[in-house]
Simulated assay, not measured.
Amino acid sequence: MRILAVSDTHGDDLILQELLVQYPDLDGYFYAGDSELQASNPLFQTYHAVLGNMDFDRDFPKTCTETIQGTTIFMTHGHLYGVGFGRNELTEAARAVGARIAIYGHTHVAMAEQHAGVVCINPGSISQPRGELRGLGGTYALIDVDGKAVTVQFASRKGIVPELTQQFN
């Protein structure tokens, strides 16, 4: 299974369209909030999307849980789960629905880490990056699940950044 995760585009819908063209045949597309677009935007017929703190269309759900090829994914924007202070609340919410992967946004900082068996992934912000990787000009994540292994590759608008690849078992 291979999925794409992106977050915090803050009005840049063109990058979401470009990613669909670049990766047309993935098993899932996940958008972790702060699009500043309408929930009725046709992009969200492809991307599973959640409400961010800068989204004003309340038709976005606060969380999303999807199971693809036997792997359950939990997604939220992160502001409702205190991700700026740690991943405990996020991990508990993901475990409550049996998720192996938790995707979140909000901090604009790309990272992947494992907590209590849940791989927590923030794809960063493709439009307004923060943190050590901000020099890349924005990031998103490609997530592969093969058996028990979860591989996370971070990419910029220029493509995959191999040295940022992480694998979790």
Score class of each variant (00 low, 15 high):
residue 1 M to V: 13
residue 4 L to V: 10
residue 9 T to V: 15
residue 14 L to G: 05
residue 15 I to R: 09
residue 18 E to A: 11
residue 22 Q to W: 07
residue 22 Q to V: 05
residue 22 Q to C: 06
residue 24 P to F: 06
residue 27 D to F: 02
residue 28 G to N: 03
residue 29 Y to C: 06
residue 29 Y to W: 05
residue 31 Y to M: 08
residue 34 D to H: 02
residue 35 S to C: 07
residue 36 E to M: 04
residue 36 E to A: 04
residue 36 E to I: 01
residue 40 S to I: 04
residue 44 F to P: 01
residue 46 T to Q: 11
residue 54 M to P: 10
residue 55 D to A: 06
residue 58 R to Q: 13
residue 60 F to Y: 15
residue 61 P to G: 12
residue 63 T to I: 10
residue 66 E to V: 12
residue 70 G to R: 15
residue 72 T to N: 05
residue 72 T to L: 02
residue 72 T to A: 08
residue 74 F to L: 03
residue 75 M to G: 10
residue 76 T to G: 06
residue 77 H to P: 03
residue 77 H to R: 03
residue 78 G to W: 09
residue 82 G to Y: 15
residue 82 G to K: 14
residue 88 N to R: 15
residue 88 N to P: 02
residue 91 T to R: 11
residue 93 A to I: 09
residue 94 A to F: 00
residue 94 A to G: 01
residue 95 R to C: 00
residue 96 A to L: 05
residue 105 G to M: 04
residue 109 V to K: 14
residue 111 M to F: 14
residue 112 A to S: 15
residue 113 E to A: 12
residue 114 Q to S: 12
residue 116 A to W: 10
residue 119 V to L: 01
residue 126 I to D: 12
residue 128 Q to C: 14
residue 129 P to L: 08
residue 135 G to C: 03
residue 136 L to S: 01
residue 136 L to E: 01
residue 141 A to W: 01
residue 144 D to M: 04
residue 146 D to C: 07
residue 153 Q to A: 02
residue 154 F to D: 07
residue 160 I to F: 05
residue 161 V to L: 10
residue 162 P to M: 09
residue 166 Q to K: 15
residue 167 Q to K: 14
residue 168 F to G: 00
residue 169 N to M: 02
